[in-house]
Amino acid sequence: MKILVTGGAGFLGSRLIQALLQPEALDLLPGHGRIVSLDLAPYPYEDPRVESVIGDIADPACLARLVDAETTVVYHLAAVVSGQAEADFDLGMRVNLDATRVLLEACRQRAKAPILVFASSLAVFGGELPDKVPEDLAPLPQSSYGAQKAMAELLVGDYSRKGYVDGRVCRLPTISVRPGKPNAAASSFASGIIREPLAGLPSNCPVPLETRLWLSSPDTVIANLLHAARLDGQALGLRRTLNLPGISVRVGQMLDSLERLAGLEARARVGDEPDPRIERIVCSWPGDFDIRRPLQLGFGVDRDFDAIVAAHQRFMKTQ
């Protein structure tokens, strides 16, 4: 048995692979199974069960070789993030849309359809939004990244309908707090305004404090991605798309949590210089969802943002 993780060298992909290697994931990856990480960079950890392939996600020959008869699960996490996709339209289309079609075609050639877990985004939504987004709200993206993810979702749905893959589309909340350094995602500040102050560094909040964000911790997102592969596809029926659980938090409330857990000095490290480009993208995203269906299907959710900040503080002590 083999699991392919595209984007396996990235923050989310490498954490997912580490989780798949744990004894608790033996149902997904038995003792004799292996994982292939496909990315533009090597998988950052040494493990004999992981093959690190440096390659182009949009290369049909590469994917035809990696998606073979042993492949039971494919996690498609590779993507050009929101800010970068907005700045470089062609790159976003190639990686976020075209490569997804190439991957689906590689899966289509297998005699037994693999499970495919596709990491999508709440950026597929936009325009006039209700206070709480219902399960069946139609996407109306207001960014190139959101449009590319929405188009890829439709592809996964149709390939699933045809039986070429057993697809599960997971619209991820904004992940906070991400360790490491800021990236080109428009939502990068959602980690930066917590991570940097906790490390004694300055940060900036580019959006109004009343901006609502739909957030999930890294650990909860990883647990939910594992759960997505375990789901019986028949339980999903025709609707293969899931708005993964998160918590609705205003940016000001995030800073309140920072102050409660780390003090006024930490909060004072966060500036408030507006960035119209980031505000235009982020403020088009929904800030709350009806998550009754994913909760009924067994997905998990964080308790509150204080718990998320505390978890990151514990993580910092291990580094």
Rank of each mutant, 00 (worst) to 15 (best):
I3W: 06
E273F: 11
G163R: 08
R280Y: 03
D288L: 03
D302P: 04
F315P: 03
L264C: 12
G163I: 12
E273P: 07
D288P: 08
V177P: 00
R277Y: 06
L225M: 01
P197A: 09
F125E: 05
R212A: 09
K149S: 00
I175Q: 09
D47I: 11
A69M: 12
C107L: 10
A266E: 05
F189Y: 13
P44Y: 11
Y164T: 09
A78S: 12
A268W: 06
S257R: 05
P48Q: 07
D39Q: 10
D88T: 08
G200C: 01
P114N: 10
T211F: 04
R269M: 12
A152C: 03
A78P: 10
L297H: 08
G126N: 03
R171E: 00
A235S: 14
V74F: 06
K162T: 15
P276H: 10
L26T: 15
H32I: 04
P42F: 13
V156C: 05
S216Q: 04
C62T: 15
E46N: 13
G180A: 03
S82N: 04
E105T: 01
D232G: 10
E279V: 14
T220A: 08
R195A: 04
S121A: 09
D288T: 02
V221F: 01
D219G: 01
E70C: 09
P197E: 05
R269I: 14
A186C: 12
L295W: 09
S160Q: 10
F315L: 12
E86F: 05
L29Y: 00
S216W: 02
R94Y: 12
G246C: 05
P294T: 08
S121R: 02
P134N: 13
N96H: 07
G167W: 00
E51F: 15
